[in-house]
Design a protein around this nucleic acid. Structure first.
Length: 807
RNA sequence: GCCCGGGUGGCGGAAUGCAGACGCGAGGGGCUUAAACCCCCUUGAGCCGAAUCGGCUCGUGUGGGUUCGAAUCCCACCCCGGGCACCA
């Protein structure tokens, strides 16, 4: 008999809500557990990919509650951003309206899923009560010189007269009209995250409960490299340029230099030269391409400027090229090229017939490519014979003696550009006064609220610029007429601190109460998609360190334990609206129920991996729940016999499952907890088909319901109540296991000969290596495989395995 | 191009010294007037024998290596996915 999932799920959702069991308060008497799923963009539809994420967070919330923690699991909305704005441009519907409708829809989905969130702490980034603190944070950064204005290029569509996001540029053209996109320089706001580069890098070492791959990605993203910076003179001109290199020891091998096409010196270098026309074309083309496109070209391209640079160590003139594989945004936008020791330079030199001089002795058979290893310096004047490290020290000292350069550290990390020429975001709280310059909006005037506009489409500037009565204001310093900043902030600003706000979401006096934050922070468990492994996590870490530095937070890392989950894939592609392969969860609530859906979401695969959605999976987990239901509600005709081995075995199997499930939850192997519970249910079936005793069954079954509770809460709660156990299941303690019961008296030992399994034998689990060897040798099959040959080695790993090496 | 992951039956996956747990699908059988539901059995490939039982060989993307022993560790290659700073 299938159970009535619709009635049961509605009943318990109502009960949890009316009893407010997930409402949380500061309670220093209990250990806290702060559990956060990355807050979603309210796209309207929750799809089964989201459901996977929230099933994980919900499982942990309920599990930790059962373990006695004071668990905070809040939910909110990343509700500013491009999709709502695009919809507004298309339909004229105000983003606030569409976003709030979508939030309501998604909340309904969460309710139907049985999600255990503390809704009293709900927040949304488009709410002025929230984003005024974005503005406050901006001003704090500004006051300390960590927010500044500088010019940076944007994608510009000359036909639509708008700034485009990278996502809106397809193959170098505007996604809407197909016009070739140009780069245009605008004055924009930055956060000086590079000031924190070293701390962001060093503190990764302490994040032991983060996935290694995420830490590695962050390390590489920050990209600290040590080397030297020095100046190079242009021959026959009173000009020079700086280069940064990690390999100053190879300077004698510099046979050309390369400048980025945007390098400020390029114009002067090519002026009047034979290559001027070609160079100008090249620069125009490079400007159209994105950095990724420039780096992605397998074949390096470049143009000779017609000028030569002077190698400072030997006075040799070397040609200066411009090439798009050198980026203006990294280092000094210019490099010394050493083809002998750098593969990209090697490729370039080979293509353009430039000299290659090796300054590090490669191994004897080395040929046809750059040599990056160590091997003793050659062809390098006063550096000859030194190893790489010594040569570096020597040449840097020489730069300093000559006053042409010095030791330098270079980061790949760039400052965080937060300006967006968009409507649907948080206004930047600055005023531009003709008399006083850039003036911050006074804290008391916050929030600077987003005004309503007629037309949402960006027109060169933010749509805010068209709202004259909003833009024109008075200068807080001199009282004269001034203009507001019309750019809005990157939505990553909102998401870089919202987890602090959850700890004190309704505070109208401060961003949050430091005491409340002190109780809850850091987040004990943070869960989200691996696509956020770099940017969002880095920004959140940066802002947390900043809040720490200004005395608001006692912690300087936000997330103790990080978990990045894989995506759900359907029909060979990532689930997304544009691919049209989104599976909404609704269909499952009706036919199978939230519990069956949740269980399959857990079961579908390892949480860290991408998983493939299979439509017949949910019916499978529903079948399992039906079996559990039937076992717990049918009358079994229990036997009055004395306890025997079968009863003991059922109890032991249950204890083994408690151990396995507990350990698997702790290490995030959610897919195998479902397997283990299914296997246990199969044991129950076997037991019930014999002569079951009520006592053994009740004890084991009660434990199974407890284990099922975090994964499939509705059915578990109903069974708990039906079987007359007292209290709400969600508040029951998580079961423990008895180690003596878990350890089995005998185990199967594998017997190998030369590493191949030849027999198995049942042995006592505490068998000695000697006894194991003797027993194994006595086996007929093993004798047959050894076949009189001499056993040269015995590898004994009792009680699991023994291996005889023969011949 | 650069950085980070991943490749195991028909499918999702399990397994850190026994490859294929658990489930899906498929095939066979039972229940049923019939179907659905439910229950039972079989299910990596190839092979051997005196054949429903016993046994052998191969097999975890490809090729090599380390080891008594490799899905697991190392090297090279192929393929797929994520990120690359204005999607979130």
């Amino acid at each position: 008999m299938a159970y009535d999932h619709k009635a049961i799920e509605a009943k318990w959702q109502e009960r949890w809500e009316s009893e407010g069991i997930f409402h949380t308060h500061v309670d220093p008497s209990r250990p806290k557990f702060y559990n956060v799923a990355m807050y979603p963009y309210p796209s309207g539809e929750l799809h089964i990919g989201h459901v996977r994420n929230y099933t994980y967070i919900d499982l942990i919330t309920r599990y930790k509650m059962m373990q006695g923690y004071n668990v905070l699991s809040p939910m909110g909305w990343d509700s500013f951003g491009l999709p709502a704005e695009n919809l507004a441009i298309e339909t004229g519907i105000h983003p606030r309206i569409s976003v709030e409708n979508q939030i309501a829809r998604m909340k309904e989905h969460f309710r139907k899923l049985g999600a255990a969130f503390d809704w009293s702490r709900e927040l949304a980034s488009h709410d002025p009560a929230f984003y005024r603190w974005d503005q406050w944070l901006f001003l704090e950064l500004f006051d300390r010189g960590l927010a500044y204005k500088a010019t940076a290029p944007v994608n510009w569509c000359p036909r639509d007269q708008t700034v485009l996001a990278n996502e809106q540029v397809v193959d170098g053209a505007c996604e809407r009209c197909g016009t070739l996109v140009e780069k245009r320089n605008l004055a924009q706001w930055f956060f000086k995250i590079t000031e924190y580069a070293d701390r962001l890098l060093d503190d990764l070492d302490g994040l032991d409960d983060w996935p290694d791959r995420v830490r590695t990605m962050q390390r590489n993203w920050i990209g600290r490299s040590e080397g030297a910076r020095f100046g190079i003179e242009v021959e026959g001109m009173d000009e020079s340029f700086e280069v940064f290199t990690t390999r100053p020891d190879t300077i004698f091998g510099m046979t050309f230099c390369v400048l980025a096409p945007e390098h400020p010196l390029v114009g002067k270098l090519i002026a009047g030269g034979e290559n001027e026309g070609v160079a100008r074309d090249y620069i125009t083309r490079a400007a159209r391409e994105s950095e990724i496109e420039r780096m992605a070209e397998g074949d390096k391209t470049g143009v000779f400027t017609g000028r030569f640079a002077v190698n400072p160590v030997n006075g040799q003139p070397v040609p200066i090229y411009i090439a798009d594989y050198v980026l203006m945004g990294y280092g000094t936008g210019a490099i010394m090229a050493v083809p002998g020791q750098d593969q990209r330079d090697w490729d370039f030199a080979t293509k353009y017939g430039l000299d290659i001089v090796r300054t590090v002795q490669p191994p004897a058979d080395w040929d046809g490519q750059a040599y990056l290893g160590d091997g003793g310096t050659i062809n390098s004047g006063f550096l000859n014979g030194l190893d790489q490290l010594a040569a570096k020290e020597r040449i840097i000292a020489w730069f300093e003696e000559q006053s042409i350069g010095d030791r330098a550290i270079q980061y790949r990390l760039r400052d965080w550009l937060i300006s967006r020429q968009r409507y649907w975001g948080c206004p930047i709280p600055m005023i531009d006064c003709p008399e006083c310059g850039l003036v911050p909006v006074p804290r008391d005037d916050l929030p600077v609220e987003l005004p309503d506009v007629e037309d949402f489409a960006p027109q060169g500037q933010s749509p805010l610029a068209t709202v004259e009565e909003w833009v024109i204001t008075t200068c807080p310093e001199c009282g004269g007429e001034a203009r507001r900043e019309t750019d809005t902030m990157d939505t990553f600003v909102d998401s870089s601190w919202y987890f602090f706000r959850y700890t004190d979401p309704n505070n109208s006096e401060a961003i949050f109460d430091p005491d409340k934050a002190d109780y809850w922070m850091p987040v004990d468990q943070y869960i989200g998609g691996v696509e956020h492994a770099i940017l969002h996590l880095l920004y959140a870490r940066f802002v947390t360190k900043f809040l720490h530095d200004i005395g608001l937070s006692t912690v300087d890392e936000p997330f103790m334990r990080m978990f990045t989950q894989g995506m759900l894939v359907k029909d060979g592609a990532k689930m997304s609206k544009s691919k049209g392969n989104v599976v909404p969860p609704d269909r499952y609530y009706e036919g199978y129920g939230a519990d069956a859906l949740r269980l399959f979401e857990l079961f579908v695969g390892p949480p860290t991996d991408d998983a493939v959605w299979n439509d017949s999976g949910v019916p499978g987990t529903k079948r399992f729940l039906d079996r559990v239901w039937k076992m717990g509600t049918a009358s079994h005709g229990f036997s009055e016999r004395a306890p025997n081995h079968a009863d003991a075995e059922l109890i032991a199997a249950t204890h083994r499952t408690v151990k396995k499930v507990t350990e698997d939850i702790d290490r995030f192997h959610f897919n195998t907890i479902v397997s283990s519970l299914m296997a246990l249910a199969n044991e129950f079936q076997t037991y019930l088909s014999g002569e079951p005793r009520a006592e053994a069954f009740d004890e084991a079954y009660k434990t199974m319901i407890l284990m099922l509770a975090p994964a499939a809460p509705h059915i578990s709660h109903e069974l708990w109540e039906l079987r007359n156990y007292q209290g709400m299941l969600a508040r029951e303690p998580w079961p423990t296991w008895n180690e003596d019961l878990v350890t089995e008296a005998t185990v199967t030992m594998v017997v190998q000969v030369n590493g191949k399994v030849r027999d198995r034998v049942e042995v006592a689990s505490d068998i000695s290596p000697e006894d194991a060897e003797e027993l194994a040798l006595s086996l007929e099959k093993v004798q047959g495989w050894i076949d009189g040959a001499s056993v040269s080695k015995v590898i004994a790993r009792p009680p699991n395995l023994i291996n005889f090496v023969v011949g």
